[in-house]
Design a protein around this nucleic acid. Structure first.
Length: 215
DNA sequence: GACCAGGCACATC
DNA sequence: GATGTGCATGGT
């Protein structure tokens, strides 16, 4: 018999949490650093992003004002390790334009207002797509928004909770329509799905050793 | 030397 | 609306 979705999603969460434990996301010293990391990690290994962030910190430009002022040439050199450095330089700069021109670099002011409105504003920035916007909303702004990524889709489809090519919105709705809006839990759940997806639920038809096997 | 990694914009059909 | 492509480094 098929349990309802809410129960299944909760069960998966509990199994993953019991198996992997708390993930302590997002690893960053400030909300602004979360935003920068969210852009730099697009289709990129987090280790490569860490190096870039370390460079930015060492040069003292991991603040809205400094990042807004720094030259593109210098910025792209510092974030080189994170890959796509020319594109990501543009994306960081377009975000900084949004933040400086609209809010004078005030993160608190930028994060005011309804979540839906804020999400639309973020999506209007060139270089900010659904996953980056939602990562910023959840991990920097503390809004109860579920973040979907490649791992989320992979784990869910492997375990029969969504189609292989379900859309971002479909998968996000699956979580947000069946779980109570809980920032702490959404935070942990997404991070746990990444942990699970990195180790299991890959291209193999069967997940050997997967903690979710026969959940 | 492939293959992958915490996407997105843009072109084309 | 679906599908294909460029973007780039660093680890396995």
């Amino acid at each position: 018999m098929k349990r309802n979705l809410a129960q299944r999603l909760l069960r998966i969460y509990k199994i993953l949490y019991a198996h992997y434990g708390p993930q302590h996301w997002w690893p960053a010293d400030s909300r602004f650093e979360v935003i920068v990391g969210a852009i730099l990690t697009q289709n990129t290994n987090w280790k490569n992003v860490e190096k870039a962030i370390t460079n930015l910190k060492a040069e003292g430009i991991l603040s809205p004002q400094a990042l807004h002022k720094v030259s593109r040439q210098r910025l792209s050199r510092l974030i080189r390790s994170s890959g796509y450095f020319n594109i990501k330089t543009d994306r960081l700069k377009s975000f900084m334009d949004f933040m400086m021109s609209g809010y004078g670099g005030d993160l608190k002011a930028m994060f005011r207002g309804k979540t839906e409105i804020l999400r639309e504003k973020l999506l209007n920035i060139k270089g900010i797509g659904p996953e980056t916007a939602d990562s910023i909303l959840l991990y920097a702004a503390g809004r109860p928004v579920f973040v979907v990524d490649a791992y989320t889709r992979r784990v869910l489809s492997r375990h029969g909770l969504c189609e292989d090519k379900a859309s971002y919105h479909q998968i996000q709705s699956l979580f947000m329509e069946n779980l109570a809006p809980d920032v702490r839990m959404f935070n942990e759940y997404h991070a746990l799905l990444v942990s699970a997806g990195k180790r299991h639920c890959t291209s193999k038809p069967v997940c050997s050793g997967c903690p979710l096997q026969g959940y």
